[in-house]
Write a protein that binds this DNA or RNA. Structure first.
Lengths: 333, 333
DNA sequence: ATGAAAGCGCTAACAG
DNA sequence: CTGTTAGCGCTTTCAT
């Protein structure tokens, strides 16, 4: 057993090949400017030693890495699909590459990953961060940051109009004759969750509905199923879930329990993910302009990166709309 | 208009704050070890100049970045979900962080992203790469690489047993009384696609079924729908799709066209993605040990990274199994 | 075509 | 607590 041997440097190769380090460097970077024979000797020596260009040195003085990081709370969540695409589109437009970082729903992991990534990127988009405000500000001190789905004063943010979307959803439910709504809450650390519940209460109050809240639950199908269990206690005719994944969970669990959707109870989701129209019944949901959000985020970020002494940092608020499908129907009153 | 001004260095800050560069460094890295007042002055100066720690310098001498890259042909594809989780698990175990890179189904983008990322990571997992073999080998010369879902001689690979899986699927169909199978092909650049079609032919021949192939199609729901259109020409009782997404597309399009699944035609997918059990009818599919693949890949990679003079490079072949659900049924013969 | 030497921006080791 | 002095591994002048 030897333990990890120190990786060979360019100097080791130089020595082995009997040339100067600078020549080795050239041999790799500008093969044309070096004697074919010498180049060959160098290549051979390099291969022999298993030489690899050091992790961070090469670009050391280039200064620009042309990369930005997009940090997601959970890559696995289809919610991010379009956001990612939007971000990539904006990045490509400017010749940048997007590095994806997964926080695995943990503020801790997010911090750690960020710490490692930070130094290699020119800017960072925090999508639905699970970190606390101060941690985010700390990051922002190191690199230009733009926050998605959350508002922090003095930091550039891009959010959807949760309030308007929720309003539309509740109106829809009211029009169908429902007299009370239950909100199945998502993660506590989620800024959006707080906004949605708040918005639902407001809308319900104004429209004369009764509002109730259960949760929090994990923002995944299983979480929705758990919500459904709690739901059954008490007369529920309409539920709005934190997101589509949960809504799907609710529908499935409800159906399994013999409750018909939408005849017995209506279900509304949030986000309009791809699977929303795949399930049966197809999900009525509040659609966020996902692609546009990703795009706007990176656009803004790049502007800041280019040194734009940040002007006003009013959060960019993108509109959302209600997509009515089959999971909502007449309420019994 | 000024153009991007050269970014301020740690020295600029030091000068502005009237301290030594090392002190500035400390102020950022170990805030405790520096006089509060001095730290404050430094922070102020840094903020004033808009100073940010240089992209690649910080870890410069650490040598190890503790990061590996996982390159995906399409992050958006749920197929990768468990692979990602597996990779992260193995990485975490070794104190590494996984950087996700999306090739957006393009060999070109993959190359470019890789070029930028490469220097910052210690190793690379290429999952379902869209690059040509030589390009992959070129990357492997720069960093330890391990290839997923594809076999390249002399490079460490991790693949699933496509052959066995397909065999099981065809047997299943045969047992149900089907006399012919159609394969709806995926992307041409896909190594797995070639393997699957080949395996289907082999199995069909041995079991006395007729095999047909249509495609290629994009490996997404829309692609499956397009496949279904072609399917309708000719008497088809059983189809195996390149992956679950396509299979779902096939089912939906078929249903829309009045063809019942599985009564009229049976559909089998590949991968057993999350949505497979969500759709109606639930999808019969060949399940790959996704999590295990991601895990094994990173494990191996890390071993190579630690300098293990690569021994035998026999591809690691993980077993797959058939998950029978509702999309397959009795064939009319 | 090649070598010597001077950095790149930052951190660590060692004195004060 | 803070300044000085060496590098980190590689690239880039500038000679030769």
């Amino acid at each position: 057993m030897q333990g990890p041997v120190k990786a060979p440097t360019i100097y080791d190769v130089a020595r082995a090949a009997g040339v100067a380090a600078s020549t080795v460097s050239r041999a790799f970077a500008r093969p044309g400017r070096v004697n074919a024979a010498t180049a060959e000797r160098i290549r051979r020596a390099a291969a022999e030693l298993g030489y690899r260009t050091g992790p961070l040195a090469r670009a050391h003085d280039a200064g620009r890495t042309s990369m930005i990081a997009l940090v997601l709370s959970d890559v696995t969540n289809p919610f991010y699909n379009e956001i990612i695409r939007g971000a990539q589109a904006a990045a490509a437009e400017a010749g940048y590459t997007v590095l994806l970082t997964d926080a695995q729903e943990s503020g801790e992991r997010e911090r750690e990953a960020l710490q490692r990534t930070m130094s290699t990127v020119e800017g960072i988009v925090l999508a639905t961060s699970r970190m606390a405000d101060p941690a985010i500000r700390a990051v922002a001190r190191q690199r230009p940051v733009i926050v998605l789905n959350r508002v922090l004063t003095d930091l550039p943010c891009v959010v959807t109009d949760n309030r308007g979307g929720m309003r539309r959803a509740v109106e829809h439910l009211a029009e169908l004759g429902h007299r009370r709504v239950t909100y199945a809450a998502g993660p506590q650390a989620s800024w959006a969750d707080a906004m949605r519940w708040w918005a639902l209460r407001e809308a319900a109050a104004e429209l004369g509905l009764q509002a109730r809240r259960i949760g929090p639950f994990a923002p995944v199908v299983a979480g929705g199923a758990r919500a459904a269990a709690e739901l059954c206690r008490g007369p529920v005719t309409a539920v709005v879930a934190y997101n589509d994944l949960m809504a799907i969970g609710v529908i499935r669990a409800l159906s399994a329990a013999g409750v018909r959707v939408p005849e017995d109870t209506s279900v509304v989701g949030f986000d309009n993910i791809f699977a929303a129209e795949l399930v049966t019944p197809a999900l009525t949901t509040v659609a966020a302009p996902l692609h546009a959000m990703g795009f706007a985020a990176v656009r803004n970020l790049l502007a800041h990166t280019r040194g734009a002494r940040t002007g006003s940092n009013e959060p960019v608020r993108l509109p959302s709309r209600l997509v009515v499908r089959a999971s909502t129907g007449r309420g019994s009153g």
